Simulated assay, not measured.
Amino acid sequence: MTQRSYKTMGINLKAMPMGESDRLVTVLTKEQGLVRAIAPGARKHKSKLGGRSGLFVVNDLLFVKGKSIDKLVQAETLRSFPGLSKDLAKLTASQYLAEIVLSQALTDQPQAELYYLLIEHLGRLEAATRANVLPCLVQAVFHLLVLAGVAPEVFRCCLSRSPLVPELGNPDWYAGFSVSSGGVVDMAELQRMESDRLKQIAQARSERLNRSAPSLAVHDASADYLPQSLPQSLAKPSATQPPRPGQRRRPVVSKELTANLGIVGYLSAAELALMQQLSQPELILSVASSANPKLAARSGTIEKAGTPAKMADHSEPHIMWRHIEKILRQYTQYQFDRPIRSATLIDTCFTSSTHASRV
Rank of each mutant, 00 (worst) to 15 (best):
I100L: 08
R298S: 07
S299F: 10
H314G: 08
V253R: 00
G149T: 01
S103V: 06
A297Y: 04
K326C: 06
L168M: 14
C157T: 07
R197A: 13
H45E: 07
D60P: 00
I324T: 10
L106Y: 13
L28A: 01
G33K: 00
S299C: 15
V73H: 12
F155T: 12
T348E: 14
D224W: 04
A217V: 15
G262H: 13
T344A: 13
S233C: 11
S178P: 14
A89T: 06
I324F: 05
K71Y: 03
V252C: 06
Q95S: 13
L283Y: 00
E271Q: 12
V58T: 15
L91M: 09
Q104R: 03
L164S: 02
C136Q: 13
V101I: 12
M275H: 03
A235Q: 14
P293R: 03
P293A: 11
M9T: 13
L295F: 06
L226A: 05
S180Q: 15
A270W: 11
A175N: 10
Q111C: 02
Q330K: 15
F142M: 11
A112E: 05
S181M: 04
L13R: 02
M187G: 01
R208P: 05
L159H: 02
K326H: 08
P40D: 02
V264W: 03
L61V: 00
A305M: 07
G51W: 09
S178F: 03
R4Q: 14
N59R: 06
I319R: 11
A175C: 12
P82A: 10
A269W: 06
R52I: 04
G265S: 03
S229M: 10
D70Y: 02
L118W: 00
V27Y: 02
Y331A: 15
P339S: 00
K67S: 05
I284T: 12
P243E: 03
E189N: 09
G246Y: 06
Q330L: 12
S53R: 00
V58P: 00
V359P: 15
L168I: 11
Q32M: 07
Y174L: 10
T92F: 03
P163A: 11
T332V: 06
Q241C: 14
P245C: 09
L147I: 08
L84N: 00
R43C: 08
G182F: 10
S215D: 12
V27Q: 01
F350K: 01
